[in-house]
Simulated assay, not measured.
Amino acid sequence: MRLPLFAGKVSAGFPSPASDYVDKTLDLNELLIQHPAATFFVRAQGESMRDAGIHHNDILVVDRSLEPVSGKIVVCAINGELTVKRLVYELGQWTLKAENPAYPNIPLNGDLELVIWGMVTNVIHPV
């Protein structure tokens, strides 16, 4: 579904005069999904990624076609349990990092069965 996209921008600081004409239309699928055949949605549960802007019940847009790289947020299964964390490589060690100090990081070692399902590309967060 295509919706109107206004030509002007909305100030998040001081108010500015409104621009009241539509520049074009925008399809959120085109904005949020780069690889439709490799993309899925999943709902976040819990608050371990709060400081990365991912909150309980947010919808994550996950792309399976992207290579996981250090510093990016991934959805993965650890010993069969799904989680969302930041994948980090530091000092020769891969870690799944929580973005909330109340939750522990998960160092990746040979004892864990890890399957990375995809990289989070967008978060849909109600206000």
Rank of each mutant, 00 (worst) to 15 (best):
E67K: 15
V84D: 01
P36E: 00
P101I: 13
P101W: 06
N79R: 00
M119N: 09
E90R: 13
K97P: 03
C76E: 02
P126W: 05
M119T: 15
T25N: 11
N100K: 07
L26G: 02
K97G: 03
E30C: 12
L60R: 04
D58N: 14
I106P: 06
I33C: 09
V62C: 09
V127N: 04
K9T: 13
V22N: 02
P17M: 05
H55L: 15
A37H: 05
I54F: 02
G13T: 06
G80E: 03
P36T: 05
E90K: 12
K72G: 11
A7Y: 05
K97L: 07
G118F: 00
V75E: 00
N122I: 01
T95V: 14
H35G: 07
V74F: 06
V75T: 07
Q93Y: 08
V74N: 01
C76D: 00
T39F: 07
P126T: 11
G118R: 01
P107N: 01
V62Q: 07
D27C: 15
T25V: 10
V22S: 03
G71Y: 03
D27F: 11
A102E: 14
S19A: 08
A7N: 10
W117R: 13
S19W: 06
F41Q: 04
S16W: 03
V22M: 03
E113I: 12
G8T: 10
I73W: 00
D51I: 03
H35E: 03
L26M: 15
D111S: 15
L5F: 14
R43E: 15
K24C: 14
K24M: 09
K97T: 10
K85S: 04
I78S: 00
K9V: 13
C76K: 00
R43D: 04
A12I: 02
L82C: 08
R43I: 15
R86I: 08
L112Y: 07
H125A: 07
R2Q: 14
R50D: 08
T95K: 06
S11N: 07
D63F: 07
V84M: 01
T83A: 03
